[in-house]
Design a protein around this nucleic acid. Sequence first.
DNA 1: CAGTGGTCTAGACCACTCT
DNA 2: GAGTGGTCTAGACCACTGC
Lengths: 252, 252
Amino acid sequence: MSDATVTLSAASAPAPTFSPLYQQIKGLITGCLEAGEWKPGDMIPSEIELAARYKVSQGTVRKAIDELASENLLVRRQGKGTFVATHIEARTQFRFLRLTPIEGEPRYPESVILECRRARAPAEIARLLDLKSGESTVLIRRLLSRGGVPFVLDEIWLPSAIFKGLTAERLTNSRVPLYSLFESEFGTKMIRADEKVRAVLADVATAQVLKVERGAPLLSVDRVAYTYAERPVEVRRGLYSTRDHFYKNELS
Amino acid sequence: MSDATVTLSAASAPAPTFSPLYQQIKGLITGCLEAGEWKPGDMIPSEIELAARYKVSQGTVRKAIDELASENLLVRRQGKGTFVATHIEARTQFRFLRLTPIEGEPRYPESVILECRRARAPAEIARLLDLKSGESTVLIRRLLSRGGVPFVLDEIWLPSAIFKGLTAERLTNSRVPLYSLFESEFGTKMIRADEKVRAVLADVATAQVLKVERGAPLLSVDRVAYTYAERPVEVRRGLYSTRDHFYKNELS
DNA sequence: CAGTGGTCTAGACCACTCT
DNA sequence: GAGTGGTCTAGACCACTGC
């Protein structure tokens, strides 16, 4: 579809919108992604076909796809095709989990769901999620461990409207990362996230769960995660014990 | 023209390794950067000239420069030219300072040099800096404040061999960020850095300097910074008070 | 083998900056 | 106007994948 609009400006005049052709193509592709027309894991049409469809040269499509690939929305595989990025791939597993063991391999942690229930969004959460205050959210409390040793206590808020039918049971029985589940079961793909990290002291309850002393130092990590179109769909408040792990970051 | 073999014209420039032409060009450009042939702030030769010099098409040079620009080694400016990236520009100021005030603008902090002396590298520091244990380093201790309120206590190790003549006085009289000074005065440009963040408790001495309670929670940030060719040239251990600031990170 | 993305070229024109 | 990077095209061939 959508061949008529952009094509006019293709040949000579930059008529309708005033942006490079490849940016417009990029927008059209992003539109297909947002609309769920191409789902995570799907192969998208080949460069040649997209070029024909949009009536531009292959090079222009290529430049659009290049940028989307560098933004981790698409994945190119030589000889196979270009695919919608997915959290199921091992490569993307650790993009959102910055805690690395001080010693040993960064295996994926064990997860225990402590709680999963509906809750009205507190004002702050509602604001971050772009909801009306008091609107229904799913609240998940979770404990992550490595080799039986707990190290992360999480509180996760999700808009109920998107995550209908999410229960502790489905979370517990799933052995895949949360974001993989969100993607496959609820059609919501996390694209990027902002985190704010602080140092705090463990209160009594937290200390008990994480098996540290009361007053032990913890990382407090506030995350807002976004799906397509910069739409916020998750707020997460994590308390990380950094006795055996550190929060890894690359500045570049 | 576009005939027989791309590989032949690649062969005219020696092609001992089997990699795409533009990667080889990228390597040649990087070589000029590492050799200090083009210094930070300099304009590098135009695409057309580089294409002529290396006997490739402009498009190939362009692709090489595109990648270097995306790695923040070069900066393109339409109509002007392509320049070697520098820490003096405002845009790069905050790439390496992830602490953001909870309220207010992220102004650049005030800096007080507490100490600057020669010291033999402890084994751990030597290992990180790729030095022999006991080799001479410059040790800087520094306090950063915002509006008179201290919030970062830093220890910085640098190889003496590179930072000859670095004194507390030169640091104190300089009103530019450290990395700008390193670049302009010592010809060493920081390219990227790895950080490991943990939560710790303030000891007595630290608490006094940072004006927090003893046992207050602090971020401990261990940084190794690299210049060209992944050569480590700085180790930094920072203690951050997150009462008024947070460590900001974007996952993407 | 056909189909995909990856590289390379050559040349056109546009947008921006400086003089 | 001259010189720079930015966009776009058309066509060639290479490298990889899977049938």
